[in-house]
Nucleic acid binder design. Sequence first.
DNA 1: GACAAGCAGATTGTCGACAATCTAGCAATA
DNA 2: TATTGCTAGATTGTCGACAATCTGCTTGTC
Lengths: 230, 230
Amino acid sequence: MAKLDFSPIADTTRRAEIVALLRRAILTGQLEPGQKLNELRISEQMRVSRAPLREAMRELVQEGILTSIPYAGTFVINVTAKDIDDAYSFNKVMDELAIERAWKLRDQRFFDELDRRHEAVKQATRDLDTTRQIETALQLHGLIYEWADNSVLLETWQRLTSRLQMYFALHQRARNEPVPSEDVHETYVQLLKGKDMRAAQRHAREHIDLDFEELLAYARGLEKRASKGA
Amino acid sequence: MAKLDFSPIADTTRRAEIVALLRRAILTGQLEPGQKLNELRISEQMRVSRAPLREAMRELVQEGILTSIPYAGTFVINVTAKDIDDAYSFNKVMDELAIERAWKLRDQRFFDELDRRHEAVKQATRDLDTTRQIETALQLHGLIYEWADNSVLLETWQRLTSRLQMYFALHQRARNEPVPSEDVHETYVQLLKGKDMRAAQRHAREHIDLDFEELLAYARGLEKRASKGA
DNA sequence: GACAAGCAGATTGTCGACAATCTAGCAATA
DNA sequence: TATTGCTAGATTGTCGACAATCTGCTTGTC
C-alpha cells in the first residue's frame, strides 16, 4: 500500500468560519479597539443565527482579543501602553527560551522553511500589503516556537501572536505610511542558520526592541490624548 | 466621603456558573481525561438548556482543558507524559522570570498574603483535603505571578495552572494515599522573604522538580499500560 | 432646576425544536 | 468471508422566539 499522509479535512462548522472572520477583522483593525460587537447586526450580516456567533465570540474572549461584560456586550479589547509593554517584555524571555530549545533541533527542513517564510515576508513587502507583511513576519518569527518541541511554549506564543498582530496593525494604520522596504529580517535569518546561539538570542531581543519602542511611543500618545479628551 | 473599595459583583449568568462547575469537575478528576461530555445529559443534570452549556464548553476548550471535534463531541483532554514534561519545563522558566520581576515589588502586603496562603495550604493538609491542598498550593505559588506586574505573564500562569492542577489531581487520585503532612513549602516561603533572589529561584526550580519526577513517572506508566492494552 | 421613579426600546441571555452529521448494526452482494 | 450500501438511533450544530437585563428618556415632584 502506498504511503500517503492525508491531512485532516477542514472544520466545516459555521462557528469555525465565524471565528476566522471575526479574528481577521480584529487583527487587521477593521474592528477597532474598544468597539462593541452587536450580535444581531453581525449575525444578520453573516447570515447566521446568534448561537454559533456567540460561541465564536466566547472563543475569542478566551483567546484574549475580545472582552465580555454580562448583559452589557462584547468588545474588542482596549490596548494600553502597559499591555504592549507587558507583551513585549514577556516575548523577549520567550524568544530566548524558544531559540535555546529549537537550536539543537534545527535541520534541513528548518532551514528550508525559514527561507520560505522569509521569502513570504519579502513578497508581501514588495506588494505593499501591510496586513500580510505583519502576518508573514510573525509567521517567520514563530518558526522557532514550532521547532522548540514544547506544546505549552508554542501555544503561549500563538496566543500572544494574536495580540502582537493587532498591536502592529493598529500602529501601521495609524501612521498610514508605506512600510520600510529594506529587509530587516535578513540578519535574523542568517543568525538562525549560524553557529552562535547567544548571538541569535541577542539579535532577536534587539531586533524586537526596535519596532517595540516605536509602537510604545504611539500607544502612550494615544493615552495622553484620551485622558486629555476625557 | 469614606474610601471604600467595592469588589465587582459576581457574574450572574448561567454560563459563568456552568464554566465553574465543569472546570471544578475536570480539575478534581470527577471527569476523567479522554471522557466525552454528552451535552444533552449534562444540560439535563444541570437543568439548563444546551446553549449556555455549549458556550461554557467553548471557553474551556480555549482554556485548554477540553478539546472539541466537530460533529463528534467535546472531550476532556488526554494527558501524555510529554504534555506534563512540556508544562513543567516551561513553568520553570516562567518561575524564574516571575520571581525576578516580583522581587523588587515585594512589600508588607506581599509578605502578609504569602503567610495567609501558606496557612491555607497547611490547613488543607491538616484537613486531609487533597483537592484543596493542590488548589491552595498552586495559589501560594501564584503569588509571585500576581506581584510580577505583567498581565501577560499572569495570564499565562493562570492558563497553565488549570492543567497543573489537573495533572496533580490525577496523580493524587491514582496513588490514593494520604498526602505527606510535612510542610514542603516552608523553605520556599522563607526564601521569598529573604534577600537572596538567586537562591529563591534555584529553590523554586528544585522544589518543583521533586513532585514533577514522580508525576512524570506515573504518566509514563499509564502510557505503557495503554499501549500494551491496545 | 434638581432629582427620583418609571416606562420604552434595544440588546444580551436562555430556551425548545429542527437540521445536519456521525456511528453502529444489518442486509445484500461478490 | 470481506466489502459495500443502507437504515435507525443518537448526538452535535443551528435556528427563531422568548425572557431578563440594561440604558436613556420622559414624567412628575419638590
